[in-house]
Simulated scan of single mutants.
Amino acid sequence: MNKFQGTGVALVTPFNTDGSVDYNGLKSLINHLVDGGIDYLVSLGTTGETATMTKDEKKKVWAYTAEINNNRLPLVAGIGGNNTLAVADDIKSFDTTGYSSILSVSPYYNKPTQEGIYQHYKYLAEISPLDLILYNVPGRTASNMSAETICRLANDFDNIIGIKDACGNFDQFNQVVRDKPADFLLISGDDPITLPMIALGASGIISVVGNALPKQFSDMVKLCLAGNFKAALPAHLSLLEITHLAFAEGNPAGIKAALKHLNVCGDTVRLPLVKASSTLEEHIIEEIEKITQLA
């Protein structure tokens, strides 16, 4: 499981001004992250605006991402939804070339019971050709996957190897760390609590801010994983404001504004999302300049 230690990044999907996928921008982003020392990449998670992409677009983006990555870093594909059978079909038809695992979000909108969440992942685990990473994000799904359900799945299925948890509840994290199998990965799903989560036993982060600041974020995470929290603390604190700004008007509008300033890719998003406001963009640029000058 060492390939999912450290800093993963949930890739944005760059779009051209006409709304089409910007493959040159995606290539630039992948190279920016590889060069920045990121440990693994997550293609088409929530940050990738998958809710507004067609199945054909997703297939092309997954294939292109694998091609450009060229086995330089482990790759994870985001494949989830609230229709278990449809998600299973998507997983069965997924071209696994170049990919190590699938990140699958807990079913949203339906608000299933804990037993329903368990049975959803049980079904996926039994048909998936790749290992699965669970994804708990109650702020988007409107339901929390409990520590009991997480650990039940972790203990029952060898190919469920970890969870990206964005619940923000340290009581839950404590229970997961206590009750999970030793090799099951707890991965932070929130940039600003990465340091304390690693101190508790998390393996790292799947980051949004890392799109723009891969070196700064991955260097901080490496210090944490080495147990050098005193040295990591200044970097952790220096990233708090850009994290706040990145999410101030929704994800990924803020981080795309940062990427545009860094000349990595454009800031176009698809409706119903809109670009960051000019005021927010100014604040993001100021903060990016401050952080990069410290590097």
Rank of each mutant, 00 (worst) to 15 (best):
10 A>M: 08
14 P>L: 09
17 T>K: 11
22 D>C: 13
29 L>R: 05
30 I>P: 12
41 L>Q: 03
44 L>E: 02
45 G>P: 05
47 T>D: 00
48 G>K: 02
49 E>P: 01
52 T>N: 03
52 T>Q: 01
52 T>R: 01
56 D>R: 13
58 K>Y: 12
63 A>R: 14
63 A>H: 14
66 A>W: 14
67 E>Y: 15
67 E>V: 07
68 I>Q: 15
71 N>F: 04
77 A>D: 08
77 A>L: 08
78 G>I: 05
80 G>M: 07
82 N>F: 09
85 L>F: 06
88 A>D: 02
98 G>F: 12
98 G>T: 12
99 Y>C: 01
99 Y>R: 05
101 S>G: 11
107 P>C: 00
110 N>E: 00
112 P>T: 04
113 T>C: 00
117 I>M: 14
118 Y>K: 02
120 H>T: 03
124 L>D: 03
125 A>P: 10
129 P>L: 13
130 L>H: 12
137 V>F: 12
141 T>M: 07
141 T>A: 07
144 N>K: 04
146 S>A: 08
146 S>M: 05
152 R>K: 14
158 D>V: 13
164 K>N: 11
167 C>I: 11
169 N>A: 15
169 N>G: 15
169 N>S: 15
170 F>W: 13
177 V>D: 07
180 K>L: 09
181 P>V: 04
186 L>Y: 03
188 S>C: 07
190 D>E: 10
192 P>V: 02
198 I>G: 08
204 G>M: 07
208 V>Q: 00
209 V>A: 00
211 N>Y: 03
213 L>C: 01
213 L>G: 00
214 P>E: 06
215 K>M: 02
226 A>P: 04
227 G>W: 15
235 A>H: 13
237 L>D: 13
237 L>I: 10
238 S>L: 02
239 L>Q: 01
240 L>K: 09
242 I>W: 10
242 I>V: 10
243 T>L: 07
246 A>W: 02
251 N>H: 00
254 G>Q: 02
258 A>N: 05
258 A>T: 06
261 H>R: 03
264 V>C: 10
267 D>Q: 10
270 R>D: 07
276 A>G: 13
277 S>I: 03
289 E>R: 10
290 K>E: 02
291 I>H: 06
295 A>I: 12
295 A>Y: 11
